[in-house]
């Protein structure tokens, strides 16, 4: 596969390490009430759709950017690639 890196353009997927569901961006607050239950869902409940999926890929043999790749898991078509840092900020993560 080729992943169209937002900064570097198309790069071979062999240069990346795959992590999985981009929902891992949404880490709960570990000190909040009910943290264990929230973390249980966060750590173990993952989407695994046959179709469009938002995934985390790490450009380990590249610029070390974490990317959010929207990919159709059936056809391998890649619909969108963004820097995970940008997605994280947009979705409310900060410090």
């Amino acid at each position: 596969m080729l992943i169209n890196h937002p900064i570097l353009g198309p790069r071979d997927a062999q240069e990346f390490v795959y992590l999985g569901d981009a929902n891992l961006l949404h880490r709960p607050d570990g000190l909040a009430e009910g943290a264990i239950a929230a973390f249980h869902d966060y750590a173990y409940q993952r989407g695994n759709p046959a179709g469009e999926h938002r995934e985390l890929w790490y450009h380990e043999q590249g610029d070390r950017s974490w990317l959010v790749v929207t990919r159709n898991t059936v056809t391998h078509e890649i619909l969108k690639v963004e820097l995970a840092r940008d997605v994280a900020r947009r979705e409310g993560r900060s410090r």
Partner: peptide
């Protein structure tokens, strides 16, 4: 190292 980059970029992007 990969994990630290994940934490830095994905969890706490403004640290």
């Amino acid at each position: 190292f990969r994990h630290l980059e994940f934490c830095r970029q994905c969890l706490w992007p403004d640290l």
